[in-house]
Design a protein around this nucleic acid. Structure first.
Lengths: 157, 157
DNA sequence: ATTTGTGCAAATCGTTTGCATCTGA
DNA sequence: TCAGATGCAAACGATTTGCACAAAT
């Protein structure tokens, strides 16, 4: 069995984004508006890049390069702004797997990640692919906001 | 119950480091030599700061400040070199919880972490405080090198 | 004497910020 | 109109690098 089995989740946004071109554009506009973000030229373009074709794990630089190659005029600063805004409204999720780069995941549903060392590639693992048991007592006054599991993998022998 | 209960592990190095002053110094020298690292002035001083008093979660900057305040002459570059060398020989473990800073843990035994958001504080969780179940099939040719669990917590209401 | 480590300062890299200029409602 | 968004370039913080000097075996 290969990884494809793990990459076929869906969060609300993706379902919309996965639809037809015309309606997808409309949906994205609606999604942004509903999130309280003005559907500007660049935000729509970035949303299309992010949500227009299945789930992805991206970095600011990656999105920037794609935008440029698609002749979408955006500045890196705007990419960063947008990624953070999208994250703030729940359209994206930040994934901490590397202490030098920030990755964003378009799949905001409950799941975990595998990180391929050396290749710096992130793979989604279904939420139930990892079973988290008892989490011992926490310091009093502390509450869990999220449990992140990163399965670090490497090319086997 | 409070967090103190989670901070009393021990890995080999710490056991040695926890011993008396004089012998501790000797042990550290031995540990470094055994690890194939010359026991230089700064490495010994840093080892003392790192392993001399229980387990800790540190950043390069933190160790640098401590060294300076203890009148140990070290440069930041050397701190980084040392932290990485120690990690390479298994005396330290890198903890990825934040995508902007790199943390090192003097506890190299099997365990996980809780990360206090906002406060950027790391707390050790016993290896058995988190139960990891089945990890679904991985892409063929991939093998697990480690499973990191980060329980993100915040001050409760 | 040789090899290895150290310090400094400059260089890098990802990310953020300040501010003038645009743009969507 | 005008709050909100964008772009640019400069600023930043963490980390790395190059290279001359110092220290360990």
């Amino acid at each position: 069995m290969d990884m494809e089995d793990h990459t076929t989740f869906n969060s609300g946004v993706a379902l919309l984004a996965d639809s037809v071109e015309g309606s997808a554009a409309t949906s994205l506009r609606t999604i942004l508006r509903d999130a309280g973000l003005r559907p500007t030229r660049q935000r729509l373009a970035l949303a299309e890049i992010l949500f227009g074709n299945g789930h992805r794990h991206v970095t600011a630089e990656l999105i920037y390069d794609e935008a440029i190659s698609k002749a979408v005029p955006v500045s890196l600063a705007t990419i960063y702004n947008t990624l953070h805004q999208f994250t703030a409204v729940g359209l994206l999720r930040e994934v901490v797997v590397d202490s030098s780069k920030t990755y964003f995941d378009t799949n905001t549903s409950e799941h975990h990640h595998a990180f391929v060392e050396g290749r710096d590639e992130i793979i989604d693992l279904p939420g139930d692919a990892v079973e988290i048991g008892e989490i011992g007592p926490l310091p009093s006054g502390m509450e869990i906001s999220r449990v992140d599991v990163v399965v670090r993998v490497r090319k086997g022998s």
